[in-house]
Design a protein around this nucleic acid. Structure first.
Lengths: 219, 219
DNA sequence: GTCTATACAGGGATAGAC
DNA sequence: GTCTATCCCTGTATAGAC
């Protein structure tokens, strides 16, 4: 998309920043629809209708569809960043901290389901440069946040050191994301006690994980 | 990756079944493109070009774009089913069996990357009835396959029984899928030893998992 | 800032020759 | 079975009135 329009708003420095409430409506509508259906399935028309404005108005606030999409992604990334930043607080025993982290993390995924879906989408198909970067940053924040906690307990000798901290983080984050991703499908298996019960899932997960990584020198 | 297995051209079953080689080319091209870009981003034109035929020819073999997509999904589901069916064989100790299962499962995901991507896509957004069913079936096969193994060892007293077998299966499958999904992004973190090394990842995962679920009554 | 109207390209799908 | 040519619709994006 290098060859775009040569008509640029030369008058003002703010190149259509979403400050006005109209733009915010559009942004919010776009976030919802993109998260549900993906980029290419969603037309500007659909977004305009959802936002309660005209199609042309969307293009007034955002130069192109892709610009709008990137704006949505950036919003999502920032929002996710804030959530992650709030995660690593707290104290208590190793198992308490890890357990709390896992629960809160999973809770956040569901609370911000749309944002999570957007990130997952990009994770699956990062073709645009910006999106790759955003996903990378988000995952990075997530990783370092939990990795630091784990390393602390590794240094204290409470967790095994023959497993990479990043590996443990991957298991935790990966399982939570997988649970989020499959929750709709898991609902169809009535025999699974944890299918409709995130807390149950999280408890069992941390139970396995903690026992798997605690430093028991019983051989 | 030319998987062009010769198929005999049956003269019957004219209901546009993908028996002819032309249809197979289209199906294969569609699989590749749909897996990479998703349903709505890919035009029939693109598929036709990739398959080396005309656009009209695609519609000769498949009534609609959606028909073609469903056919691709069904192929994928069948292929995945075959892979899963081959997984649960083998014997040895509990850790050997679980470890082998995990390794083979992850290997399959990468070997059939396109198929895996298609399933993941549908997992994320099952709106069409058929696709929901296919994903459901595939996951179901996967689950029961590994759940049975785990239950066996639970009955033998080697694994804890206070954790659902399905939960353990979820962790295993979920982690593998997450690793597959993020492998492109993980590559960008050079400090992760397992990022470019699926075997390493798998070994650490099963290490954690096995220690987390084995029935140690050392309290 | 918001609209109606419009330009233009590309999408899915069909008709009919070969 | 395969093609070219075509239809109609919807998509993105622009122009210009208010």
């Amino acid at each position: 998309m290098t060859d775009s329009t040569d008509v640029k708003p030369t008058t003002k420095a703010r190149t259509k920043t979403p400050t006005s409430s109209g733009a915010q409506n559009i942004l919010s509508a776009a976030e919802e629809l993109f998260a549900q259906q993906g980029y290419s399935s969603i037309s500007i028309n659909a977004i305009a209708k959802q936002a309660g404005v005209s199609k042309a108005n969307v293009f007034h606030h955002f130069d192109t569809k892709e610009t709008l999409y990137i704006a949505v992604l950036q919003n999502a990334s920032i929002e996710m960043g804030h959530l992650i930043a709030e995660l690593d607080s707290g104290n208590g025993s190793a198992s308490q901290q890890i357990g709390r982290y896992a629960r809160q993390h999973l809770q956040n995924l569901f609370d911000k389901a749309r944002v999570t879906q957007l990130i997952l989408r990009e994770l699956q198909q990062g073709d645009k440069d910006e999106s790759v970067q955003l996903v990378h940053n988000t995952l990075n924040k997530n990783f370092t946040s939990i990795v630091n906690i784990i390393k602390k307990f590794q240094d204290q000798g409470e967790f095994r050191q023959d497993i990479e901290a990043a590996m443990i983080a991957t298991v935790l984050i990966g399982c939570n994301l997988f649970y989020f991703q499959t929750s709709a499908v898991l609902d169809q298996f009535p025999e699974l006690a944890f299918a409709k019960d995130p807390d149950n899932y999280c408890n069992q997960l941390t139970d396995i994980l903690l026992r798997g990584i605690e430093n028991k020198s019983t051989d």
